[in-house]
Write a protein that binds this DNA or RNA. Structure first.
Length: 284
DNA sequence: AGGTGGCCCTGACGGC
DNA sequence: TGCCGTCAGGGCCACC
């Protein structure tokens, strides 16, 4: 469940470890995580040998490791992807998929991914911004993020509010957890029609999304199970800060009504039936 | 062409 | 005890 805060924690962890280091060898232990690299695992490996990492970057939930050559390794953690830093010779993780060895002996970087929704690819000329993710909108933490423009984009959609929040071409970085938390904070229902939002309401829901993600980032992200940990294998603490997500049956912290879990887009939405009632203008 | 739903993938868990 | 269905949910992609 890595969303923006979790990906940012990983980016920061990798920054200390990869920046300026020279890749000695890459090992691909399962082909699926490099499926986006159409030329295949061998080509992926060959292109990386001898290259030097510069400081890692992020947009929304995408993370990339720029190379001094101007290219980049583009990655997405998907549902269960993790980057881990480990001493050379440490036992392989059960779901170790890709290993980066370096010219020095300060340890290696590993991509571990149980469900393999995540992956890595080689992006030519992608150091600044990989072309593969040019369509992804800026996230609220981006210095060039335009809150006004994002609110306008939200209101232009003809769909339900949560669907639009999860659409990475409107605003990036928000996933199921922070969408539900932002909706609760804004006292809005997930099915509220986006084109019925007043300009101020659109600004509000995005402000709440930014705020809840900032709070989560401040405590290392949200860890439900072992699927999200930082590069050193440590969990985040924001699970304690969740008001609705995963809280079915627990009292709403605002008004005490039991939180409801409802099916939504083949997954779940959590809301308070009293402070987030079904709107008059709804799109499911 | 924007909106929508199916699919990928593995492991945990509950019911029988 | 063991098998099976369900759920978790990112993003891509086909279809309308």
């Amino acid at each position: 469940m890595p969303e923006l805060p979790e990906v940012e924690v990983v980016r920061r962890g990798l920054a200390d470890f990869t920046t300026g280091r020279t890749i000695d060898a890459v090992e691909v232990l399962h082909p699926r995580p490099v499926r986006r690299h159409l030329a295949g695992p061998d080509d992926f490996i060959a292109r990386l040998k001898g290259q030097v990492f510069t400081a890692p970057a992020r947009r929304g939930k995408y993370l990339w490791l720029p190379l001094a050559s101007g290219d980049a390794v583009l990655t997405h953690l998907g549902m269960s992807g993790q980057f881990r830093v480990q001493p050379v010779g440490a036992p392989d993780e059960a779901h170790l998929r890709v290993r980066f060895r370096f010219a020095d002996d300060l340890g290696e970087v590993r991509f571990v991914d149980q469900r393999m929704f995540g992956g890595l690819s080689y992006s030519e000329g992608g150091a600044e911004l990989p072309g593969e993710i040019a369509h992804i909108a800026r996230d609220p933490f981006d210095p060039l993020y335009d809150a006004e423009a994002a609110a306008a984009a939200l209101r232009r959609r003809k769909t339900g509010l949560k669907r639009a929040l999860l659409d990475q071409t409107v605003v990036s970085g928000i996933g199921n957890i922070y969408a539900d938390e932002a909706l609760w904070r804004a006292k809005m229902h997930y099915a509220k029609a986006t084109d019925s939002l007043k300009p101020l309401q659109a600004r509000e829901i995005l402000r709440h999304a930014h705020e809840v993600m900032a709070e989560a980032l401040g405590v290392g992200g949200t860890s439900f199970d072992a699927l999200y940990v930082n590069v050193n294998g440590e969990s985040g603490y924001f699970e304690r800060g969740l008001n609705v997500y995963g809280q079915e049956g627990s009292p709403c912290p605002r008004d005490g009504r039991p939180i409801r879990r409802e099916p939504f887009m083949n997954r779940s939405s959590f809301r308070c039936p009293r402070c987030q009632p079904v709107p008059r203008l709804a799109r499911w």
